[in-house]
Design a protein around this nucleic acid. Structure first.
Lengths: 327, 327
DNA sequence: TTGTAAGCGTTATCAC
DNA sequence: GTGATAACGCTTACAA
């Protein structure tokens, strides 16, 4: 069915080896042979078999990306940049959305072991999976704490937390709530919380962190954020741990008849290009998504080639000043 | 380095074949052998080599997804569902973001030919690429017109155009502008335009379609939409061809001191879960993204297995009634 | 119930 | 310059 190198060789009247040499520009070849073989490839519409090549070379040219879900703009943009960077360096990407599926993450890691991919970039929440003990493998984590031997690329979450909280305090409010994921997940994002609590207490204000799991459905999140409004009826500002949730909070506030920023200030986190363009009024902390992707790819390729790397890369964040934080 | 089946066999004191049989539950095996082999696999932490398997089986268990960019929520959600559906059926996905890169699309198609993937799901804008002549290959298009032999899955764009336009007319406005991609791209989305123009003329109103390329950057889009406001200073409503752009239009309107919906009505298109939750006030046409993904996967798998399929699958749309279309 | 041997398509070594 | 041949790791007739 599909033509193989042998068919090309036969048609061109040469041996398999010669055809292979032409295919890979190996050794010296006569003009004539070259042309004959190229012609044969053309007419047969020959494409080298990927599996056979991989089997021989012992590498696949594939990188696995495991993230909660590309339907979240932050991960969508991140994956987009990762794919771009990797494509530039001749890698394709396999993606796995691991949200609410611990098994999937394990499965993908097994694939790596099976040699189906040459490396992995992880941004998942599921922690402490046994296979992570294989820390000698080419794996890089983005914004997630992994095994201590796995390099991690993140933005400056602590600084981000400081910037956000400070911004709200500067606006003149004192009853500021922060929302974040469960502290049981030891993600770098928890440092936003630490920073928030530090700034609050430094100013003699009482920190209130409201826990909400990232992995909830939209409907569940809405319900949970409505509880937030019930629990803190007199809150003046919220520092939400991501922009999508900040959007939900704003829409709930409107539903409840509160005006932003008149009645409630809001600061988000992530600062995707999408949000900055669609909801520019939302004050948020901008993570350097493109830069994070670049660094992650650099580090991964170093790991693959056996070069030593740092274990932690912290990239700077920025404050996007919208109107949702102005009194 | 990495253990192979032979190492397992050796450690278990059996032959390669037996080990393979255990691995694949083939034939009858004694309890003892089974246990021995399993133990050996365990201690060696054995994982079968993917390339070798693929080479033998002549299939990869990989499907290629080519879309403009997963950083757009519509494609992000679509890819998310596609990955989910395919994972259920033991396929992993390779993704390619082809935005502004015709060559990439060609490259991925070549991969298919190279047997690196078992099938392709396309949602790209780049048309008329030579390789599409290989229409006997397992390829499915989502919302894109391809070669006439490639099945296409889409939502009812014409109906969507009708619903959106009718909604605005019902709100009592007459100067309604529509924005859409260049008509040179023969996408199904152009049917939204056809529908819009039909409804407008049916009501004796003058249709005005404003062309804007999807592939522009955010900055370029902003500039272009600002032109729209200059060209039609007295417009009362806009029917935008996707929600992200609708968001941009709304933010521009605010910048220009116009209130929505008091001064300007807006209807979007796509109705992603993200938008319905973050910007519920935006009236929009909801595409059945999850259903489209399911159908696309079904059709692709049929094509792969050689089963005959329809050439066109049109799924129903819904109107999401927000406040941006209420006068 | 288990083992031998051939083959999947490519590449590289080493003679010619 | 070109051509056999073995190897990559796995699977499966076919034998034993």
């Amino acid at each position: 069915m599909k033509p193989k190198l042998e068919d090309v060789a036969k048609l061109a009247g040469v041996s398999k080896t010669t055809a292979s040499h032409v295919l890979n520009n190996r050794g010296y070849l006569s003009e004539k042979t070259l042309e004959k073989v190229h012609d044969a490839m053309e007419t047969l519409n020959y494409q080298p078999n990927a599996a056979a090549r991989q089997l021989f070379k012992q590498k696949t040219g594939l990188i696995g990306l495991i993230f909660p879900t590309v339907s979240n703009p932050f991960f969508g943009e991140l994956v987009n940049y990762l794919e771009y960077e990797l494509y530039q360096r001749d890698f394709k990407v396999i993606i796995g959305n691991s949200l609410q599926d611990t098994h999937k993450e394990t499965d993908y890691l097994n694939q790596l072991l099976a040699g189906q991919v040459d490396g992995l970039i992880l941004g998942t929440h599921n922690q402490g999976i046994a296979e992570y003990k294989y820390s000698h493998l080419p794996v890089v984590a983005i914004d997630r704490v992994m095994n201590s031997d796995i390099p991690i690329v993140e933005s400056d979450n602590y600084k981000g937390g400081i910037l956000a909280t400070q911004r709200l305090i500067n606006a003149g409010v004192t009853r500021i709530i922060h929302t974040n994921g469960p502290s049981s997940l030891e993600t770098p994002a928890q440092r936003r919380r630490t920073a928030y609590e530090k700034v609050m207490t430094d100013y003699g204000l009482e920190p209130h962190t409201f826990t909400i799991d990232f992995r909830l459905s939209f409907a569940e999140k809405k319900q949970r954020y409505n509880e937030l409004f019930e629990i803190y009826p007199d809150m003046e500002a919220i520092f939400v741990s991501n922009d999508v949730d900040a959007g939900i909070v704003m829409s709930i506030a409107k539903e409840r008849g509160q005006n932003i920023p008149a009645d409630l200030l809001v600061v988000g986190y992530d600062g995707t290009e999408l949000m900055r363009n669609m909801v520019p009024e939302l004050t948020t902390i901008v993570q350097p998504i493109e830069e994070m992707a670049k660094v992650a790819v650099d580090v991964l390729l170093k790991r693959i080639s056996g070069t030593k790397t740092e274990l932690e890369y912290i990239l700077p964040v920025d404050l996007w000043e919208g109107e949702t934080s102005n009194r």
